[in-house]
Amino acid sequence: MNIFRLAGDISHLLAIFILLIKIWRSRSCAGISGKSQVLFGMVFLTRYLDLFTSFISVYNTVMKVIFILATLVTIYLVFFKFRATYDSNNDTFRAELLVIPIAGLAVLVNHEFSLFEILWTFSIYLESVSIMPQLYMISKTGEAETITSHYLFALGLYRGLYIVNWVWRYYTEQFYDWIAIVAGVVQTLLYCDFFYLYITKVIKGKEMSLPA
């Protein structure tokens, strides 16, 4: 554990709770892609199966459980409790076009051909693109509430900080995991456009609207 990874994890946790609090306080999930949340749910459930097989640390276990539960609660709020506010007409990204090729890729390109390892690889690949339905939705409606943009910023920052963590680990522990690194770089690149808009608009107190 180093400061970059800890900061990344906190940023990730913050993102998830910003979203939950936004939905809970406003009693609405307007502007939120339920599809992205389902993809993140799949990411956590397939990656954290090792909760049952290997113990790493109390920190690790607690964080995994929080990520899974918080994401399941978010999915419940979007699709059940506040379903009437869910903007499904604008949440039209074809998520299956991500999941199916990624499942194939995880079977073909992995560290080890075993069920848990393939599921872990699937979750890493899937996480890298899980935000696409949300970004697509924002580009379609052309706007995002300020709190939604804080959510996206914290979520993008998390994987960016993980990259710094991997550089640090490479030099201090000679540790690297190229699957995580390549997917993590792709994931961070997806947020670049958004980071630019966030810094130039939201920080200056303007609502975020995307050019059509």
Partner: peptide, 10 residues
């Protein structure tokens, strides 16, 4: 033990 045996990151 290979590096990927334990995925210690979240």
């Amino acid at each position: 033990c290979s590096e990927y045996d334990s995925h210690d990151e979240l």
